[in-house]
Each structure stands twice: as C-alpha cells, then as structure tokens.
Design a protein around this nucleic acid. Structure first.
Length: 489
RNA sequence: CGGGACAUGGCCCAGUUGGUAAGGCGCCUGGUUUGGGACCAGGAGAUCGCAGGUUCGAGUCCUGCUGUCCCGACCA
C-alpha cells in the first residue's frame, strides 16, 4: 500500500488518493459516475440514518417520486428552466433490438418516445405536479415530505463525492399556507443541517443566505451552510430554499382557505448529498489517512490481537473476544480483527488509513499483565489501560475525540476567517485561503467582477454577520453589510 | 466544449532505429514468521483502451473514436 501524497504537497491529489485507498469509492466505467464501496457506503448510511431521524423528529415523512420527469415539466417555472435546462440526461427511446448488421444491441428507432423523459436533476417539478392533486384545503397543509433518491446532473468535471454526475441525496419538499410558515420551515431545516454538521460530523459551519446570483434556480431565497476545508477552500455543505409561490403558480397548486378563498401555497425545498462525504474527509483527515468523528464511524473501535505463536495465542484470542463482547454489550460498534493471514503491523496501518477512531491491541504481555493497548486515531497517542477499566475508558475517549475534532476544526475556521477592508487586503487574503468578511455593494455586477478577477465567490451573507454599513472593497460604493467571500469547491 | 498529458495482467509501470511484452505490488501454493505495512521458494494471470490504416511484421508509425488526469469554460 503506497503512502498518501502529503496534504501540503498536493491537497487535491491527497484527497483523490484517500478516497480510493481508504476504500470509500472508485471511478466507475461510466463517465463521471462513482462506485461507492461498502466502507464508504457504511459512513453514508450512518449520516443518512441520523439525518432521517432528525427529519422525522421535525415532523417530516418519507415518500418516493419517479426517476423520470416528462420534458415539458421542466419548462414550467421560468427561473428553474434557466438553471436546469442544460446538463441533463435525456431518455429518448424505450427499447433495444438485436443489431441486424452485427453483434450486440442497438436502439430500436421505432421505439422513440413521444415525449422525452429527463432523468431528474432535482424533483421540484414532478413533485409539484403531484402536489396539485394532494392539496385542496388548508387542512392539507403543511405538507412535509422528504425523499431519499439519486439525481443526475451531467457535470463536465467531476470529483469523487464532491461533484459526480449521479449522486445520492435527500430532498425535502414542503408546502405551507403562509409565507411566514414557509420561511420558518426553510430556516428550521437550515438549522437541522447545521446541527448535524457540527454535532455529528464535527464540522463547524457558517449559516447564511446566498446572494441573488448564487441562489437556487426558482427560489426566492437560498439558505446555506458553508464549511471550510483544510486547504482554505469553502464547501457548500447543504442548502435550504424558500421557493415562495413560484412552483405553486407554475403548477397551479392552490388551497381553499378557512374563509373560502383560493390561495397559492408557499414552498420550500432542502437537500444534502453524498458531497457531505467529501466534506467529512477534507475536514479531519491527515497524511496517514482518514480521520472519522466517532459518532459517524462505522467502526468505533477495532481490536487487533497480537500473535506471537504457541500457546499464548489462545490466551490472547480469549482476552480479545472478551473485550469485544464487553464493548459490544454497551452498544459500541466494535470489530475484532482476528484474521490470521494479516500481520498486526499491517492492520495498524490499515485501520489508521480507514480512520477507525480507537484501536485496541492485546498481545501476550497484555494478556499476562491484564492490560490493553489503546491508540487514538486523531492524536496517535497510545496508553496501556487495565482491562477492567477499558469499557469506560473507551467510551470516554470516543466522546473526547468527537469534541476534540470539532474544536480543532472550529479553531481552524475561526483563525481562517478574517475581516478585510481594502482590495489589497482582500486579494492578499485570498492567497492565504479561508473566509474573508468584506463589504460588497450588493450588485450582481460587482459580484461577477470579483469572481472573474479572483475566482472568489460570495459564500453567503451570514445570519449572525456584521451588519454595520461600510464601503465596497471593489467599487467603493456604499455597502449595507459585510458578506463572506472565499474560493470554493 | 477549447489547450495539454496519458491509456500495457486486479494495481503501479518498463518497453531503444518497428521483430511477438520486463519488473514491482497484489493474488495462489508451501515453509519460516508475527508488539508498526515480514521473508524465502514456486505458480497463475496480457486479444498492449477501441476501430481502421501503413508494413513481410505494429505495444511502437498514421487517422478516427472512447476514457482518465491537469488547465480553462461550466457547476442551479
């Protein structure tokens, strides 16, 4: 197993290598698409399970809508069309036939669809078309539905997890009687995402609102959580959209009020995707491999027996098995790796690469002394702990590591977030990376100009940001408040 | 979609003026080993990305295509 390229040498290369070497995912034979391998999928499943629970706690239910969307649906909402018309996979035929001139199959030209089907890039249109029939009365509201699905966006340049042509995500689609209620919903889900990112992924985020040009196509407002990766680049980790009445009007979804009038409903949609896997990797991992926050690690602790041959083997195996059973009994996700075809040194390196938070080793010496060697992944520290204290020790260690990872990432984000007041400070700050809090005159022209000149984009207008007026760093025009700039993934 | 590089067993890669593919990792068998990615011996595994062309002969030269990576454009 080759060593990973160090982060300070080539961060991008390090990322690509870690995804493959830690057995998270690989490129598939289909351009831009990935195979998520069992270990990577186990992490995604944990994220999914936790998020699904959070959605249900906030009153949402799951449903499933079709993969295919009739082409005409995508023409209904003007801004949505503009944003999504391109880069979609289109189904034009429904049958293959044997190639009359050779081997294999060809598309049967007689099987052309009357109306092409689009592989969903997002499901607003088909869901709102369906909601028209579900919503008649104020009694049907609010409608709080989520779906776990795959979507396809024909991206030109892809990277495993960060941007793939097909990806897994969840998309919540809600309908409300009032504007205020819909906005409250969009904000609520933003905070659910932020709580998940910080509490489970140990990844601090900035909560904010997108500028108009970065807004979702078809939304009146896009709320977002923005995270900062180790290389100083920002990553949009989740979005929650207030859709106004745009889709209700496009698909003619109205409800009867208590007073008997007909009103268009108000909408939100919100989503996070397998991109969170990329965020997780780039927030904590190091040159030895993945570092996982304990709460999301498929394996919280791994036990490695150290065999020296002879009769001691059985004693060691017995001690390891007991340790495994004790940890499992308190609900820990623990693995005993008693594969005797791999050496212990190989296993140590392997589990470090895979980011298992705690490694426990027992050899003949430990079996004799009644101790366990405990190594933590984040700091690499090792200690010998009496076997009768090990369960409590491991539980405490996992909690401590979860907090330590968050605090380290939080410190990094805090020190990498700086106020700049001049164009010189701004351009210099960009070279160092991180978030730059700066004044902007509020126009899309200036935003575009800054993006062209520096590749920096407005990540968001932070919800708790500085709202004292000032002057724009680029034009010197009046600015209502500071916004957060960064170069982003 | 533009500019560049690359494509050789599962993976990394050598291959000279064109002459029938070498090595490492991994895999299989046996043995010795085992407290930080073991060693020795033997073995299996390749229509050289695809399709044409030049040639007595193509991994090698030419054309087209496909894919991957890097730099742009794009990224809701």
């Amino acid at each position: 197993m080759a060593k990973l390229t160090p982060r300070d040498q080539d961060y991008s290369k390090w990322y690509n290598e870690i995804v493959v070497e830690a057995d998270l995912a690989q490129h598939s034979d289909v351009k831009g698409c990935m195979v998520i391998k069992p270990y990577g999928f186990a992490i995604w499943e944990r994220m999914k399970d936790v998020l699904d629970g959070m959605f249900k706690e906030t009153g949402h239910v799951n449903a499933y809508f079709p993969l295919f969307i009739p082409k005409s649906y995508l023409s209904k909402e003007a801004a949505h069309v503009e944003g999504f018309a391109k880069e979609c996979a289109v189904v034009t035929h429904y049958r293959l036939k044997n190639d009359p001139d050779g081997q294999g199959v060809v598309v049967d030209p007689d099987a052309k669809l009357e109306e092409e089907l689009i592989v969903r890039p997002t499901s607003e249109t088909i869901i709102w078309k369906t909601y028209k029939n579900w919503i008649q009365s104020y009694r049907d509201l609010p409608l709080l539905v989520n779906q776990w699905a795959n979507v396809v966006r024909w991206e030109m340049r892809t990277r495993l997890f960060l941007r793939t042509a097909e990806f897994l995500w969840q998309e919540g689609h809600t309908a409300h009687a009032t504007r205020e209620e819909a906005i409250a919903e969009a904000e609520k889900m933003l905070h659910v995402y932020a709580d998940f990112a910080e509490g489970w992924m140990a990844m601090p985020v900035v909560r904010g609102i997108k500028s108009e040009s970065e807004r979702f196509a078809g939304a009146d407002d896009t709320f977002c959580i923005e995270a900062l990766m180790q290389d100083g680049k920002a990553l949009q980790a989740g979005t929650s959209h207030f859709l106004g009445q745009n889709f209700a009007k496009a698909f003619d979804v109205t409800y009867a009020t208590k007073e008997g009038t007909q009103e268009h409903v108000w909408a939100t949609s919100w989503g996070v995707s397998t991109r969170l896997m990329g965020a997780l990797i780039m927030t904590h991992s190091d040159d030895k491999g993945l570092v996982l926050p304990p709460k999301l690690a498929p394996i919280e602790a791994v036990i490695v027996p150290i065999q020296k041959g002879g009769e001691a083997n059985e004693v060691v195996n017995g001690a390891c098995q007991k340790l495994h059973d004790d940890l499992k009994a308190v609900g820990l996700r623990v693995k005993l790796d008693d594969d005797d075809t791999k050496r212990s040194g190989w296993k140590f390196a392997e589990y470090e690469l895979k980011g298992v938070p705690v490694r426990l080793a027992i050899g003949p010496r430990d079996a004799e002394n009644g101790t366990v060697e405990v190594a933590r992944r984040d700091t690499g520290e090792k200690a010998f702990i009496p076997a009768d204290q090990i369960v409590a020790h491991v539980q405490g260690l996992l909690t401590e590591m979860q907090d330590a990872l968050f605090n380290a990432a939080k410190d990094r984000m805090t020190t990498s977030t700086r106020e700049v007041n001049t164009w010189e400070e701004f351009t210099a700050g960009l070279e160092e990376g991180g978030f730059l809090s700066a004044h902007w005159d509020g126009t899309a022209e200036t935003e575009e100009r800054i993006k062209k000149e520096t590749k920096a984009t407005i990540r968001c207008l932070p919800l708790d940001g500085d709202t004292t007026p000032g002057t724009c760093i680029r034009t010197g025009n009046p600015s209502a408040r500071r916004v957060l700039f960064a170069r982003a993934y």
